[in-house]
């Protein structure tokens, strides 16, 4: 049997908001180490990998590895019924065909349970090896979201170039073109406002803004975002989830014919 109690239930609500438009159905995998998910969008251009480590839950019981297929639209509907301050407990029986979400108000005066039917989903996991990336940019997540949103009003794709001068986001479209350069800065009072660039080699890659904009729905999960890039590899856009894990989005680049 499975019983996972997450005191900060709003994290799960935010995770669903961040991925439900990218992925329709997904298997949530539960093991001793944590609650995780790996899924691709329908066109196999983007991949999302979520990890909520077991030690981030107040109570974590998972007797044996369990993979639960869920429709994320339906899961999101149910989690929307939880208050932002609610404690969320996920419960399932081994081999059962449903999962129960229990919501408790902080003062324990209201308890709800919502049972959702599980579905069979062919589990296809991509093996993603640990990689040394050529360039890693850490920047405020709101700034990254702003840049993606602004540039998508001009063009459909963005060229992200990392050099010793900074990280440059460039686009062009019918009405004109735009470049945004963020330089490394060190914020004394607030680390979350820093832009930090670690670069072994300059990198320049082209991506569809539509997907990057979708990833920025995770902005509410973290004040900072990390972009890891290497030549001829998908970019990794990572949002840390405080004390408990991360959500990583991988996006395959566009290449010149």
């Amino acid at each position: 049997m499975l019983e996972l109690r997450l005191v900060q239930g709003s994290l799960l609500k935010k995770v669903l908001d961040a991925i439900k438009d990218l992925v329709t159905d997904a298997n949530f995998d539960c093991s001793e180490s944590g609650f995780s998910l790996q899924a691709m969008d329908s066109s196999h251009v983007a991949l999302v990998a979520l990890l909520l480590r077991s030690d981030g839950f107040e109570h974590y019981r998972c007797d044996r590895n369990l993979s639960m297929g869920m429709n994320l639209t339906n899961m999101s509907k149910m989690l929307k019924c939880a208050g932002n301050d609610d404690i969320i407990t996920i419960k399932a029986d081994d081999g059962g065909d449903s999962v129960t979400f229990m919501f408790e108000s902080p003062s324990q005066d209201k308890v709800s349970d919502f049972e959702m039917k599980l579905m069979d989903i062919d589990s296809e996991h991509l093996g993603i090896p640990e990689t040394e990336y050529h360039a890693i940019v850490k920047m405020p997540s709101a700034e990254f979201a702003r840049i993606c949103r602004d540039l998508s009003t001009i063009g459909d794709t963005v060229v992200i170039s990392v050099s010793k001068d900074g990280v440059k986001f460039s686009t062009s479209g019918d009405i004109g073109s735009a470049n945004v350069v963020c330089r490394q800065n060190n914020s004394v009072d607030n680390k979350d406002n820093e832009t930090v660039i670690e670069m072994n080699e300059p990198v320049s890659l082209t991506f569809a803004l539509r997907y990057l904009n979708s990833f920025t729905k995770a902005t509410t999960l973290s004040n900072t975002v990390t972009l890891s890039m290497s030549k001829e590899l998908p970019v990794v856009v990572e949002y840390k989830i405080a004390e408990i894990g991360h959500i990583r989005f991988y996006l395959a680049p566009k290449i010149e014919d």
Binding site: S43, H44, V45, A46, L126, G127, P253, I255
Partner: peptide, 14 residues
């Protein structure tokens, strides 16, 4: 022209 690549051209199913 640019072509959109797919995840499975970089990583393989495990």
């Amino acid at each position: 022209r640019e072509t959109q690549t797919r995840m499975d051209s970089y990583y393989h199913f495990s």
